[in-house]
Design a protein around this nucleic acid. Sequence first.
DNA 1: GTGCCGATGATCT
DNA 2: GATCATCGGCACG
Length: 190
Amino acid sequence: MSKLPLDFFLNNNVQEVAQNLLGQTIYTNINGNISSAMIIETEAYQGPEDKASHAYNNKRTKRTEIMYKNGGCCYIYICYGIHYLFNIVTNKINIPHAVLIRSGKVISGLEYIKKRRGNHIPNSKLLQGPGNFTKGLGIDMRFNGLYLDKKQIWIKNTSTVKKQIITAPRVGISYAEKYALLPWRYILKN
DNA sequence: GTGCCGATGATCT
DNA sequence: GATCATCGGCACG
């Protein structure tokens, strides 16, 4: 169980990285409080060609600039004014691919995660959904632009060799026309 | 379990 | 001023 090296994210196939991330364990350290989660749901966003991506057509703005960095970098943005969404930039510099992390399963730091989410939330739902995932792990805009080899955030290689993956269309992007139908959402079975 | 709906603000035109 | 890579609460039944 070793830390994932950053070159894991330099792969030029973002769909492959999104699938390889399933079963890996992500850690956050918020003021010394460490919590971790197994990644169980991801979505691939293939920048320039993908109408659902913020970087469609190589669009460069202040917000999307992070996506043009080298793979292994965190891309955080606010969705619907309320929720932080966590993406990992993939591929080489100037190629704006990214993987959205949608759901996880608590591995450690349950007490911190419950505190951030509220005690009435059942354990199985603590990190379900992209907004809940970031809230539970304490991820916010401070993480935007951080690489995954920092003391605040990192990923350990805990994926089993054999895993069963369910594919599905991505969520909340009906405006993306034919790209909305592509099965670029990946869910770990069980 | 499913379905509707308001909250809420950064971002871009 | 419009557009969202969402969530929780409430109404069903």
